[in-house]
Computed example of a mutant assay.
Amino acid sequence: MIGYLHIILRLVIWFLLTANLSVANIIIGVCVALLLPHPRTAPGAVKDWLRALGKIVVAIPQAYVEAFELIFRPHTQEYITRERVKPRRSPGLIFLDIFLITFTPKTIVVKYHEDGWYEVHRVRQRQQ
């Protein structure tokens, strides 16, 4: 099951990068997704993948809300925090975590530390 999720994730990334859904591009994308090396680490549990994908679905409306907040009430305070990576995360799940944090307009991952931390840049409204 996890192998299919890796292939689907690679295909989605391919189609986002190429922005082309022609037959030739689909064939090339499937070939690239299958020929890329498979992860050597232990795969994440299906439950973790589904939970991460559920968080991304929830983040879509949150991103729109945050975008409108930034338009109508500009945020002037910035700060960088460190967030711990959840234990036993596969590289694919770490990528989805970084994507989830970066997807919303008020946050972006500045750096991923191999020892299990993300540096996250955030903006917020000035406290009155």
Rank of each mutant, 00 (worst) to 15 (best):
S22M: 08
R73W: 03
T107M: 11
G3A: 11
E114Y: 00
T107H: 05
V110P: 01
I28K: 13
I56T: 05
R126N: 05
A67I: 07
D115S: 12
S90G: 12
I2S: 08
F95M: 13
R126D: 01
P39H: 03
V123R: 14
H75Y: 01
K111Y: 03
I8T: 09
I28L: 14
K106M: 11
Y64A: 14
G116A: 10
C31Q: 13
V46G: 07
F15S: 09
H6G: 02
T104N: 12
T18W: 04
I28D: 08
G3Q: 05
I27Y: 02
P105Q: 13
T76Q: 10
Y79P: 00
I26L: 15
Q128R: 13
V65N: 02
V30R: 00
P91L: 06
A59R: 06
Q62A: 14
I13R: 14
A33R: 06
P87I: 11
R51V: 14
L93I: 15
W49K: 04
R88K: 14
V85H: 03
G92K: 00
P39V: 05
R88P: 00
T81W: 07
K111I: 04
E66G: 01
L96F: 14
P61R: 03
Q128H: 13
I94G: 01
P37F: 05
G44N: 08
R126T: 12
L93S: 01
W49P: 07
N25G: 05
T107I: 13
V46D: 06
M1W: 03
G44R: 02
I27N: 11
K86Y: 09
R82N: 10
S90P: 01
V120I: 15
P91W: 02
L36Y: 04
I101N: 02
R84M: 09
P87C: 07
E78W: 09
A19F: 08
I13G: 00
G29I: 03
F72C: 07
I94A: 05
E66R: 09
K111F: 02
I60A: 07
R40G: 02
P39T: 09
N25M: 09
L9E: 04
L11W: 04
I98W: 00
E69F: 06
I80S: 05
V109W: 02
R124H: 10
I98P: 01
T102S: 15
P74I: 12
H38I: 06
V110F: 06
A33K: 04
A52H: 03
P61C: 07
A45D: 12
W49G: 14
I56H: 06
L34W: 06
L70G: 03
Q125P: 06
N25W: 03
R89W: 04
Q125D: 09
Q127T: 13
V12E: 08
H121K: 08
G92F: 11
R122K: 13
R10G: 02
L70S: 01
Y112H: 14
S22A: 10
L16Q: 10
L96Q: 08
A19I: 08
W14P: 05
Y118D: 00
V12M: 07
Y4N: 06
V109L: 04
A63F: 12
L21R: 03
Q62S: 07
A59V: 07
N25Q: 15
G29E: 03
H6F: 05
S22Q: 12
I60C: 07
Q127C: 09
P37G: 11
G29M: 07
L96E: 09
I27V: 12
L34S: 06
F95V: 15
V123G: 00
E78L: 15
V123Y: 06
L53P: 00
K111H: 10
